[in-house]
Write a protein that binds this DNA or RNA. Structure first.
Length: 291
DNA sequence: GAGTCGTGGTT
DNA sequence: TAACCAAGACT
């Protein structure tokens, strides 16, 4: 059963994989790790220019570790979820202190780094070091949901059943497993997308349980929509945008202009300080964190 | 386990 | 146009 998936998907990957900079040999484990942080909830097209900038500026973990965390936040630009920049900086510090400046090869040691969870630990171990891990991201989950389980979409949160399935489908051979991880993810990213699934281009359309069932529509509760306008997140984004552009401490009065409602504005700024994304100074001044 | 956390392109 | 979506992590 499983070989009927592995072989065509990997062959398709060999023919259609995108030439992404973090897939080139010269990227190395650090390049893979940086890309994985940036790609969390963020499209490839927006990551590409920032990735190139980061790797040119900080080619090794120790280079980033020497910087102020605020510089990482500034260089993050408008990628979104700027706590990732802080965590990546923290991971670089930990790698420099605990692992001699080299991205660890061990899954448990990767998982212990800030900003690295179940997915990213498996992804770095697999993509950078060729190890055998179930790499279960939103693309792979969708491919499995359709091809194997026969439903349009996976559950909102990753389930034990999905993890078990991913382990069962993992090729025994280490190199093949790593190839399969990248290939199944790419298939979900390019062909078996959330909307407009491209069955005509799919290498496993003939075996796809969902297609064979007549592509039944998703049942159950609507898949959570995330509103943004008017939320604290939007206010945080506006505040941080001002601080990213500034190269000197910013007075409170300048920050006050980004949002009219004072209670929400104060709550958002306080949250940024709590998260370590903003450093308050004496005299009502604010800046990106120096330490 | 449900909420929170950015941003911009696509439909 | 409002909603959906994009290689999740953390509390």
């Amino acid at each position: 059963m499983t070989e009927k998936l592995h072989t065509p998907v990997i062959a398709w990957f060999d023919a259609h994989a995108r030439d992404l900079p973090w897939r080139r040999p010269e990227a190395g484990p650090w390049g893979v790790m940086v890309s994985e942080f940036m790609l969390q909830q963020t499209p490839v097209s927006r990551v590409l220019p920032v990735y190139e900038e980061w790797l040119a500026r900080w080619p090794r973990p120790a280079d980033l570790a020497k910087e102020a965390p605020g510089e990482a936040v500034r260089a993050w630009g408008r990628l979104g979820y700027p706590r990732r920049a802080l965590r990546l900086h923290g991971a670089a510090v930990a790698i420099t202190e605990r692992h001699g400046g080299d991205v660890p090869t061990d899954h448990a040691q990767l998982l212990a780094l800030p900003g690295i969870g179940e997915y990213t630990a498996a992804a770095v171990a697999s993509f950078a070091y060729g190890q055998r891990h179930a790499v279960l991201d939103t693309n792979v989950r969708r491919v499995f949901a359709r091809a194997v389980t026969g439903v349009q979409y996976p559950p909102n949160a990753t389930t034990a059943a999905e993890r078990r399935l991913a382990r069962e489908l993992l090729p025994a051979d280490e190199k093949t497993a790593a190839r399969w991880a990248a290939a199944s993810m790419e298939l979900g990213a390019l062909v078996c997308t959330a909307k407009n699934e491209g069955c005509a281009r799919c290498p496993i359309a003939a075996q796809c349980a969902w297609r064979l069932a007549g592509k039944p529509e998703h049942e159950g509760p609507p898949r959570r929509g995330q509103t943004y306008a008017g939320t604290d997140r939007q206010v945080r984004g506006k505040l941080l945008a001002v601080l990213r552009e500034a190269h000197a401490p910013v007075p409170q009065a300048v920050l006050d202009r980004v949002w009219h409602e004072p209670v929400q504005r104060a709550r958002a700024l306080d949250g940024l300080v709590t998260d370590g994304l903003v450093e308050p100074l004496a005299g009502g001044l604010y800046r990106l964190p120096l330490s």
